[in-house]
Design a protein around this nucleic acid. Structure first.
Lengths: 335, 335
DNA sequence: CTGAAAGCGCTAACAC
DNA sequence: GTGTTAGCGCTTTCAG
């Protein structure tokens, strides 16, 4: 069937060992003549070394597993691409699994992936995964966590984004533009990330001596439809700006305001969070907070591969990325 | 280090063979007692069979390679997820590689992936990849092509979308609404897909006895900025509808029309192609043509895995998916 | 400078 | 019902 190291050795009239050495560039001790000969034959025969066999003896497969909730979520799409690009540079491939935030699936996927002897795992746990759980305990495959921490012994680092800082900057931006009545549309507060974002809003008010009006904080859903309905049905619009926990909510709010005859940004300013593609395409384009997802993916790969290169290394701890405020046309100074 | 089949065999006081048989469910001939014992020990020891070793002897790794231009392109994101979901159901994992439409990278990635002994490859070639090239020729890994055909011997099928039919339906929709002056904004015509889409437009006119005005066909770029500038700078708006080769162009056109004081859909109707997320979020929401990317990914996986199950199977030939017209608020009957 | 031999963890005939 | 043996394609001591 396909050509093996043995075939090359026979053809070249040398031993497998010698061929192996040139494959792996451990050829200081091989004469130029035989080396060239082997190389030539390998090329002619279109030989590619079987990584399975290699991996079996070296215990390194040069592939890493990527576990994310859903590749279709743009945040994770970008993380994946970042991870892939860094990995490729280092000669690694990526096996990916979408877990749909499903606990059982996470466990299944980890098992599948470990069987394949990946060298390491980049894992973005679902928001429900409990820290208490010990199902990942027996794992000795090294892991880098993304976005959410887990108390596991083989973790080599955590890459996350400073959500609090994101809404902090967004809110500060509004305050700097003279807004003091700022509605905050939050996602479901049972979730850490959601709470961090809310805290950023609160902190920005506090730091800038803006009074907090509890009524301005509304817990909702991370959906266009939710914010649209909410704003549409509000009795009174007694604020000059809205800070939203994600872009979809911001876009829904803008649409509802428009239908109520209010202009964004002239009457009301709106900021979002995420910087989805739509943010720059709508009218007015949306001021929002971009998460450096691609860079985070790269970093996760980097930490994992660095560790793989030097297994004495300790966990790098938590690497926090700062989100970036992108100012567009949905926010405006008051008056 | 990690526990092997040998350890289990020793612990259970049986041979590796016996353990192997229960691992692979070839246990008709194993007594219930020993089977249970082995199972119990495997569980206790947290044993997972090493797929590398298995693969080395069975010649099947249960992983498939996925080669796409860019995972961040939503069309390919959805294809990937479809492929992944079907593959998982069948016990396969996916290694993915983004090629950035780069010819050299495609070749590199295929090589990397073949070394890892994937059982098959799902390949969406870059638009520039020439049929003439023979670099993929020596491959004996089976392949299913997506979106674009390639003349390779080991192809087991091609999954594509009927682009022509897509613009045909979109144009027909406009004609049905009474439009006769329909501007067509095309992408770069060197590309097959782009030409197919244009042909759909032409065919719809012809079939419905609408005169073709050559001036209505404009070759541009698949970008928001291009159509925005183009419409913004047009001397005369002498049409009642625009059919765009993708959604970004449609959205750019709508923005430019708005800035020229024209209302969509009251003054001008606009249709797009792709159904990106933004399409339903903008105001007015965009009538467009959705490509069944997820389903295409599933199908590609299905074809490949079917073949893997029965290697006598011939190529299934070309499977063509019909795009779906999604009618929203950017189109309206004339008068 | 090169090769023989052992072994990675597993499966698959074929005996017993 | 269960075990023996050979071998998948490769790397790695260790000799020569």
């Amino acid at each position: 069937m396909s050509v093996t190291i043995k075939d090359i050795a026979n053809l070249a009239g040398v031993s497998k060992t010698t061929v192996s050495k040139v494959i792996n560039n451990k050829d200081e001790s091989i004469s130029k003549a035989t080396k060239d000969k082997i190389l030539k034959i390998m090329k002619e025969q279109n030989y590619v070394p079987n990584k399975l066999a290699q991996g079996l003896v070296t215990k390194r497969t040069k592939t890493i597993g990527l576990l994310i909730p859903d590749i279709r979520n743009p945040f994770f799409t970008d993380i994946s691409r970042g991870a892939e690009d860094y990995a490729r540079k280092e000669g690694y491939n990526i096996i990916f699994c979408s877990t749909d935030e499903d606990y059982e699936r996470e466990v299944e996927c980890i098992e599948m992936i470990c069987e394949k002897m990946v060298d390491g795992i980049i894992f973005a746990p679902s928001s429900n995964t409990s820290n208490k759980d010990d199902r990942y305990k027996n794992l000795n495959t090294p892991m880098v966590l993304v976005d959410k921490n887990l108390d596991i012994s083989n973790s080599k680092g955590l890459v996350k984004v400073d959500n609090k800082n994101g809404t902090y900057e967004a809110t500060k931006h509004l305050i700097n533009k003279g807004h003091k009545e700022i509605l905050y549309l939050s996602g479901p507060l049972k979730n850490d990330i959601t709470r961090d974002r809310l805290n950023g809003y609160l902190r920005a008010l506090e730091k800038n001596n803006v009074n907090l009006n509890e009524d301005y904080i509304v817990e909702g859903k991370y959906k266009y439809e939710w914010s649209y309905e909410f704003i549409k049905n509000m009795k009174e619009i007694n604020y000059t700006a809205i800070c939203c926990a994600n872009d979809l909510m911001a876009i829904g709010a803008i649409q509802a305001l428009r239908e109520r005859g209010l202009n964004v940004p002239n009457d009301i300013s709106v900021v979002g969070f995420d910087d989805i593609q739509t943010a720059k395409l709508i009218d007015p384009s949306l001021t929002t907070v971009r998460q450096p997802a691609y860079e985070m993916g790269e970093k996760a790969s980097e930490i994992l591969i660095d560790y793989l290169k030097n297994k004495d290394k300790d966990s790098v701890g938590t690497i926090t990325f700062k989100p970036e405020l992108i100012v567009r046309n949905s926010t405006k100074s008051i008056e």
